[in-house]
């Protein structure tokens, strides 16, 4: 067990945990931030996606000891009340079925748009290839990313 100081959604937290504990379980069990989901534990499904210094990362495969002083943003911290263009676009397109993967999808989409504000279908397919939606809402996710891109532009 060791003590770690983390900066999550702009707030500093001290947590005591084994060094190899994945960030996902720190967020969920220690900080009560359950918006990031467990789906596979091996970085294959994307349900746990968070931003680490602005980069999209799989929190299930990132040991807490490797986070250091990085700024971590989770779905809870993406915007104050859900006003991020990606969140708004997701509502306009009415994307979800079960909704379990959508926090991860939104975090990956937000990271994509930050780097590439006008992505093509191929750019989106490539950036989102690590996020599984078992309900098959992919076409809506792709559409919502285009809608969000337009919002960012205006």
């Amino acid at each position: 067990m060791a003590e770690f100081t983390l900066k999550v959604n702009g707030t500093k937290y001290k947590v005591e945990a084994a060094a190899d504990t994945p960030l996902l379980w720190i967020l969920r069990d220690h900080l009560g931030l359950t918006g990031s989901k467990y789906g596979c534990g091996i970085g294959q499904c994307g349900a746990c996606t968070v931003h680490v210094n602005g980069e999209s990362m799989r929190s299930c495969a990132l040991p807490v000891s490797a986070v250091g002083k990085a700024q971590v943003i989770t779905i809870e911290g993406l915007s104050k009340t859900g006003e991020h263009p990606v969140q708004q676009a997701w509502h306009e397109v009415d994307v979800p079925q079960c909704g379990y993967c959508q926090a991860g999808q939104i975090m990956s989409a937000a990271a994509l748009l930050k780097k590439n504000p006008t992505p093509s279908d191929a750019d989106i397919n490539s950036a989102m290839s690590g996020n599984i939606c078992r309900c098959g809402t992919y076409n809506r996710i792709r559409e919502a990313i285009h809608v969000a891109a337009k919002k960012v532009k205006s």
Partner: peptide
């Protein structure tokens, strides 16, 4: 008429509780 899913906002802001989130 099409009506949006009632839990959308909670889902998009990480506040929707699923089974694994129960505490």
């Amino acid at each position: 008429q099409s009506h949006k899913a009632v839990d959308n906002k909670k889902i998009f802001t990480g506040k929707q509780e699923f089974g694994l989130d129960f505490k």
